Computed example of a mutant assay.
Amino acid sequence: MVERRLTLGILAHVVLCLGVILIVFPVYLAFVASTHTSQEIVQAPMPILPGDNIWASYKGALLGEGAGGGSQAAVGRMMWVSLVSALIITIGKIAISLLSAFAIVYFRFPFKMACFWAIFITLMLPVEVRIGPTYQVVADLNMLNGYAGLTVPLIASATATFLFRQFFLTVPDELVEAARMDGAGPMRFFKDVLVPLSATSIAALFVIQFIYGWNQYLWPLLVTTKEDMYPVVIGIKRMLAGGDAANDWNVVMATAILAMLPPVLVVILMQKWFVKGLVDTEK
């Protein structure tokens, strides 16, 4: 039995190592490409060891000093746009979902369940399905090329509302009665009891929604036409002018590496809360 468990453990570690290699190797190649000149990258075979052009590549990316045929927007500005947009989307989704779930669970009003199911049904209508009418509304409100246009159509979340509703339903009624006996009003109960109890769920949703907001591509592609409002994901696409010789591949790869850093940092810094929010048995 011990030998069988040892064999299974070795096999599991081998599979995990292979999976890590498959995931990390493309990232490593992107980093290596960002340390060479564009002429060295397009040579065959491509170098697989880091070069000495790293400072020039990352400086050119951050300051928009590339010489390729595509967009020359500064990556520092694009990352700022992506960061602001991702934070607005994330915080907005969490705040709206908390309040809507609180109203559905703890308040009595006509057609309460109809309102909940109307919210839930919107899961079948993602942005891609309603993109035409949404774009028309945003354009009519003069919200193109702005943070409002990038974030407002993406700020509501039926999934987060459903998750918070399910958690609020598990909160003991005794807490509600105790808060009422202490003279706490609805918003006091929400702020002092429900929000602290939901901390791990909020942390898990923050990580998921931040990555969702950071990686948005289709919607920003429609509502941004000015370089100073490009998110970094759109910026990478705009840098590609077509043809290997027309692109500064070292700058493009440096931009890709820089674009990975904020989501990776968020996951690393909030990993403990993220895992706890997903696996907590009391949820």
Score class of each variant (00 low, 15 high):
127 V>T: 10
205 L>R: 08
114 A>S: 12
246 A>H: 10
145 N>P: 05
79 M>L: 12
147 Y>G: 06
29 L>Q: 11
66 G>K: 01
178 A>N: 08
183 G>E: 08
60 G>C: 08
270 M>A: 13
132 G>F: 12
144 L>E: 07
158 A>P: 03
102 F>R: 05
174 E>N: 04
30 A>M: 14
210 F>E: 08
220 P>E: 01
49 L>T: 13
190 F>H: 05
144 L>C: 07
221 L>C: 04
141 L>H: 05
240 L>V: 15
224 T>Y: 03
57 S>N: 13
43 Q>M: 15
74 A>I: 05
11 L>C: 08
18 L>H: 07
93 K>P: 04
251 V>G: 03
178 A>E: 12
138 V>H: 02
118 A>Y: 11
186 P>W: 14
263 P>C: 11
223 V>R: 06
168 F>E: 06
67 A>F: 07
159 T>R: 09
200 T>L: 15
190 F>G: 02
247 N>D: 11
145 N>V: 04
243 G>I: 10
132 G>Y: 11
278 L>W: 00
242 G>C: 09
258 L>A: 10
8 L>H: 09
204 A>D: 07
147 Y>I: 07
267 V>K: 01
139 A>R: 14
268 I>M: 15
192 D>T: 05
121 I>W: 10
10 I>M: 11
238 R>W: 02
72 Q>M: 07
175 L>V: 03
192 D>W: 04
29 L>S: 09
66 G>P: 00
22 L>N: 10
198 S>N: 09
265 L>I: 14
149 G>C: 10
9 G>C: 03
91 I>T: 09
165 R>F: 07
274 F>C: 03
283 K>A: 06
177 E>D: 12
278 L>M: 08
273 W>M: 13
158 A>L: 10
256 A>K: 02
34 S>Q: 04
19 G>S: 14
99 L>I: 10
74 A>L: 08
173 D>C: 02
52 D>K: 12
26 P>A: 05
163 L>H: 06
